[in-house]
Design a protein around this nucleic acid. Sequence first.
RNA 1: AGGCGCGUAGCUCAGUUGGUUAGAGCGCCUGCUUGACAUGCAGGAGGUCGGCGGUUCAAGUCCGCCCGUGCCUACCA
Length: 888
Amino acid sequence: MSELTKVFEHAKIDPKWYAYWERVGAFRADPSSGRPPFSMVLPPPNVTGWLHIGHALNQTLPDVVARWKRMQGCDVLWLPGTDHAGIATQNVVEKQLAEEGRTRHELGREAFEARVWKWVEESHGTITSQMRKLGSSVDWSRERFTLDASLSRAVRRVFVSLHDEGLIYRGTYLVSWCPRCRTALSDLEVDHRDTAGKLYQLRYPLHGGEGAVVVATTRPETMLGDTGVAVHPDDDRYRELVGRRVVLPVIGRELPVIADAFVDPAFGTGAVKVTPAHDPNDFEIGQRHGLPQVSVIDEDGRMTGEAGPYAGRDRFAARADLVAELDAAGLLVGVADHVHAVGHCQRCGTVVEPLLSTQWFVRIEPLAERALEVVHRGRTTFVPENWTRTYEEWMTNIHDWCISRQLWWGHRIPAWYCDACDAVLVAEEAPAACTCGGAVRQDKDVLDTWFSSGLWPFSTMGWPDATDDLARYYPTSLLITAHDIIFFWVARMMMLGVKFAGNVPFETVYITSLVRDAHGQKMSKSKGNVVDPLELIGEIGADAFRFTLAALASPGMDISLSEGRLRGYRQFVNKIWNASRFVLMNLPPALQTRPDVPPAGDLDLIHRWILHRTGELSGELQAALEGFRFDVAADRLYHFFWHEYADWYIELVKPRLQGDAAERDTAVAVLLEAHDRILRMLHPFMPFVTEEIWQALPQRPGDGRAPNGTDCTVSLAQFPAPVAAWRDEPAVSAMTLLQEVVTTVRTVRSEWGVPPSRPVTALVEGAPAEVRELLGAQGGHVRHLAGLSSLEFADTVARSPDTVRRVVRDFQLHIPLAGIVDRKQETDRVRRSLAKLSGQRKGLQARLAKPAFVERADPEVVRDAREQEQVLAQRQAKLEQILQELGG
RNA sequence: AGGCGCGUAGCUCAGUUGGUUAGAGCGCCUGCUUGACAUGCAGGAGGUCGGCGGUUCAAGUCCGCCCGUGCCUACCA
């Protein structure tokens, strides 16, 4: 037990407890424990990355779950790790080199890889220490990296296996190519941005005769690679031309005019130039009609030798010059502004070039089918469930996955080529030589980063070996991740998990929203509205930050990181802190262990009430968390702690703590019980401040015992469950009545500007016996909270113009305020409440007067309405009487 | 072009299976140095729930259309 400082210094306290948790093994999974397992994998951040706001959310929410499950007695595995992030990391290191005026090619592959490893080792600590600052309760003893030897072995195993099954193939196809990164990309790595461009109409003269065909294109430079012109088969304008030939300007190549249903007769001129080597559609048209493929743009984005006079020029320079040349030759028929989607490299923003290239692909359909099926069978559930649609859409319209990258940083493709016999050997380990005896050399390329991330849920647990972890923790219970990587990551894990680990990777996938700025704008560096979670943690502490994220995490809504909410929850932490200081400073000095709470039947109203409400809160939290309603859980905790526990219970218990020994001991016992339970319930959301306070409170021996057998932590203390013996609805209705009386008096004080220093008295007129009894017994509480010097009862109270009268339920409160009350103001006030009330009553009466309502509505609803109408009638009569006696 | 959202108080958001005249935080107004907390306490003002129509005894909640707004997927040159 120790004193709490005047203010909560998160910067000092947070790191202390994180180190403590690690030291006592609080987050370590234990497969040998008899406890029910609960498992998650952490979406591995980029090993050289920096914790951004998205990570913060996608670690806070699972951390809430992990801590909650741990406190419920589960054996929780939350497995952390980092991703080598192939293209992203390589780009960063290349930039570093560029600043030194060097390129990776000057360094050579080996030296470059060594350089990246060095950078990885340097910066790995950044992201992991940032996770600790946030409080993520991951099992660091099981941390993995996608390039670990064991994970690399899993990658090779999967590659070879898919290849042997014919699900990985190598071939020359049109792929998206980034001329700056100099690598092929998958479809997903291409961002389509609407771009203002031009639609050019070009005239291709007919071969051997007069006339011409006018084609439309947004990319005139690709005409140099045209090998045909296509029109729609039913297009009467061109029917005669099909089968004839046109002459390609500049190059002079003769191109057949072909008919293909792909062409939209309504677009442009209805005639399309066909460039099979630089356009995905044209590639397919070319295949259908056996057109040659002429590559005119190379891997650097320059025109090739096939581009005639433009060979060696940059593709965009060539476009401009070519348009000028065609214009001069009278072959440019028209130019119009045209907005169209242009593919950009997701990593560097360069305009992507579709070009022919030999790459490795995954034949995706058979994998997608099974991944779709397991979701349909309910093996994996998406939350919110509408993400199932998104998943299905993509899985059913999926294209083969280009997995080879012309990079140096990543898993080297396990394929070897024989120079002697052209054989391709795919194997987990390097073959010594080809079967023909010839020397072999390994494929130079590496795999798409997402290929290894796709194995994450099982490769991290030791697959392909049959490990204990795998048996116990796979499939994982839950994945929490953002929607922007459903395709990149979730879908691939589903496909590969089902295929290789023999089961779905997760039972539930909870998809979080994007975190935006205070006004719902997407955060971006160019807008300058990026919020750094670490700065926020520095300012308001991890607890307040986490609580804000949880409170704002309503399913299906993007999160606007509102400053008001952040500030509000920082103040909540302060409130918790100060309430805890109050509790601690009111404990008897000798108290070492926590006293037991007396049986509820022996307790006074306020104690029974808070115990009942604390128990109810447990149930509400349980339900909210089971349904992933982090926002609801946070809201309940906030409201309960501040506006029930602190505003009412603590205020009510204050005099008891000054009372006689028996009264004080009971108050201490209940106060500690309630406080302890609330701290436990808050802990998953606010791990640091709750641990600091919990450690300072007297505990029962053994509560929250850590695996090391000596230390204790709230993170392993039992999460409160509802207590049947504490259920006490009558206590709630009694408290509600007290609160109504207190609030009524306070409102009167406020209305008439009666300062707290000035005592007032109150007389209760016409209260039924049970109310009288209750208010009599609890009169001390009411007087204390309402600032009354006396509270008395009477059947009738003499009318006085100096007395304010208020109706509470079916009785009246008389508060004499001689010299303060203005009769006219008071009359207006009563008149206003009367107007409001009679409006309410009229609505009810109208409803009850309708036979349809009485006949068709739920009898209970009708009964409630009748009762309510009676209550309002009584109140109305009393108010009318008051008004009359005021002379209004 | 398809798919998925969103539109409730000045701002950021809740509102469970339809059921009294809709809630929270911040902001705003009034009064308070009430020994845990001015990062606080007490009280208060503020919304025809984007619009129109429909279903129903009853609609913020269900259905249709419209308007506004955001995101994702997509090979229209």
